[in-house]
Design a protein around this nucleic acid. Structure first.
Lengths: 153, 153
DNA sequence: TATTGTTATACTCTATAACTATA
DNA sequence: TATAGTTATAGAGTATAACAATA
């Protein structure tokens, strides 16, 4: 996003009713977090997107590219280039689907797992900093509400 | 975002630990909301961004373009074209800053106020649908936590 | 006929730097 | 010298359609 502001106090304009607009609050918090996350992931050659795919490739769930696209809310064609990138770096591999030979399962290599472990630790640190104003219970509650809004619809 | 999915049940991949990743949850909920919001705003010739500016232009706070850029986490150059667009549609006007003649204050026209009222009603409806799984107290708590994370840092 | 992955293309959004006018 | 607004441009991200292989 344009300005990687670190709003450290409530700005004057937050008094407008749009200061309670869920869409804007989500956009701002997400944008601020993305800057932190992508900066932290740079040393591993990753971005938020590729990290998400790597995580799922490490999960043991054996996701197909189609599942990745659905879950990450990305277009299948975007998954192709992201997986290409990870595969080029030796972090994941494409395996043939067991039941459906059209489908390709994305699995992490041993090196991918090592990179993921380190990258994940860096992101946990980012999340701590981003949500520093919230205590442990509040962080849990925030996650619960976000998950509920997304998946209990 | 790629696929404007309407996740109506928790997908298989949500079991991975990334299903609790705040960054991903924020991205997904924000993206899903943007699709709804922009679709609803289309009939008014607005998008999320231009609606935000129109709202602040209606607020009585007399924001300068610089303040809009800071508050909306957008680059000043992006504000220029968004305000151009709104001004071209007759919804806002640029007024000279009172203390600083460099600064330009963005204020809504009477027509801008009328459009804003109608657009806002449409967005309230979108927010209701997007957060349908949450009760009133949970919506308030979600907003409180988001605001706190952003501005109590 | 429908779906998975792929490629290609056009479009929007974002980031950056330079310029002007005021301060 | 610094700041508000503007302009221009390159890059990243997104949306869309078409195609081959498989179901």
């Amino acid at each position: 996003m344009g300005t990687q502001d670190t709003d450290v106090e409530e700005p004057r304009l937050a008094a407008a009713d749009i200061g309670s607009d869920v869409g804007l609050l989500l956009a701002k918090l997400h944008a601020a977090g993305s800057v932190l996350n992508n900066r932290a992931l740079k040393e591993f050659g990753l971005k938020e997107r590729s990290f998400s795919i790597l995580t799922l490739a490490c999960s043991g769930l054996e996701p197909t590219q189609r599942e990745l696209a659905d879950f990450l809310s990305l277009d299948p064609s975007q998954i192709v280039s992201l997986v290409d990138e990870l595969e080029g770096g030796g972090l994941v591999e494409r395996a043939a689907g067991k039941l459906d030979r059209r489908a390709k399962i994305v699995v992490a290599t041993p090196e991918g797992r090592k990179t993921h472990t380190k990258a994940r630790a860096a992101l946990v640190e980012c999340e701590h900093r981003q949500l520093a104003a919230l205590d442990g219970a509040e962080v849990s509650e925030l996650k619960r509400l976000l998950r509920k809004a997304l998946w209990d619809a």
